[in-house]
Nucleic acid binder design. Sequence first.
DNA 1: TGCCAGGTGCTGG
DNA 2: CCAGCACATGGC
Length: 275
Amino acid sequence: MREIAKIINDKTIEVYDLQYFDIDATMHSGQVFRYFETSGGYFLIDGGEYAEIVKQDGKVLINCSDAAYFYNYFDFQTNYQKIAESFSRCGAFKKAVEVGSGIRILRADFYQTVISFIISANNNIKRFTKTLNLLSSGFGEKLPNGNFLFPKLERLLTLSESDFKDIGCGYRSRYLVSAVKSLLELDINFLSSLPNERLAKELEKISGVGPKVAACIMLFAAPFHRLNVAPVDTWIKKALEELSERERAAVLSSEFGGVLQQYIFYYTQFLRDKL
DNA sequence: TGCCAGGTGCTGG
DNA sequence: CCAGCACATGGC
C-alpha cells in the first residue's frame, strides 16, 4: 500500500498525503478530548505522551514526545482508502463518507480512554472535556508549555469520591473510584486476546462501563482497535432510525462498522450546523 | 424553566 | 431477561 506519512526522526512525523488524513475531522470526531487548538493546528495529549500538530501547505507536521508512538496513534499502518471505498456502494452514506473519510480511528491510551468515556456518559462533550482538563491539571504532570499530561493510574488510585466530585464528575464519582481499582487488576494482554462479545463483557465489569462505553473503548483504545465495533449513542440512534434495515446492518455488522459509525457521528453531530 | 448530553446501575416484575 | 427510573451538573 501507499505510505502517507513517514517518521523523519524520533520526535517528528511528516504526513504528506492528506486525502485520508484530516486532522480537523479526526480531532472533532469525538474519539479524544484532550486537545487544544493552536494558531497553526493542535496540541494534543494522550496518556503520558504529547504532540504538536502543525498544518502546512498540503502536509501536516507532527512534533511530538515519541514519533513511533504517534505513528501508531494515528494508525498510519492502516489503509483508510480501502476502508472508505468499502462504503462507496452504500448511497445512504455518501455524504458522511465524503465528509468523514479523512478521519483516523486513533489508537488512544487505554486508561485515558476508559476514564474519559465513563465521564462522558449522560453528559455533554463541552462539559466533560472541561472535567477531563481539570482532572489533568489537578493530578497530572505539568509540561513546559503549561499543559498537563493525563494523570498516571497510580495517582488516580489515590483520589477520593469527593476529589472527583470537585472537578464535576457528579454521581459518576463513585464509579470512578471503583473503576480505577479495576484498571489496576486488568490483564490487558488477556483482554486483547478476547473476541468482541467476551471483551465487552469483561469491560462491562468495570463500574460505569456499559455497552456504549465498552464499545468506545473497544474501538478507540490502542490495545483493541476493533474497527467492526460501532458505539450506539443518542446521536447515532437518531441517525440509524433514518436508515433502512439493510443500511442499519451495514453500520452495525460491517467489517469496518465502527469507522462508518464515526463518519456518521462526525457528519451528523459536528457538521449539522454547517451544512 | 425544563430538557438534553457520545448511559449506567438498580430494582421489580 | 427487560422496562422504568434516578442520577450531578451546566448549557441552551
